[in-house]
């Protein structure tokens, strides 16, 4: 098992765990980060900047620190 920050652009994975405090968890859940959802990394910003990911129909950007808290499994 790995976390979202390790996923390369163009790769898909399924969210299998979210390790976050309540406020971050709420925020992620509201944007569609839920266990079992398919997630794709579209691109990563230069200089270790944020990730651009897609869940369903929604595009989201998030920092690496937050991405580390999302566990994924790649089929």
């Amino acid at each position: 098992m790995s976390d979202l920050s390790q996923l390369q652009p163009g790769a898909y994975a399924v969210i299998c765990g979210i390790d976050a405090d309540e406020s971050l968890f709420q925020r992620l859940a509201a944007l569609g980060f839920r266990i079992g959802k398919k997630i794709e990394v579209i691109r990563r910003a230069s200089f270790n900047g944020p990730l651009h990911v897609r869940i369903g129909t929604t595009d989201i950007i998030l920092r690496i620190t937050e991405a580390r808290r999302i566990q994924i499994s790649q089929q």
């Binding site: 406020s23 944007l31 944020p50 595009d59 950007i61 998030l62």
Partner: peptide, 9 residues
Amino acid sequence: TEPFILELP
């Protein structure tokens, strides 16, 4: 304390 998570419309 707000995490940097933004929707890209």
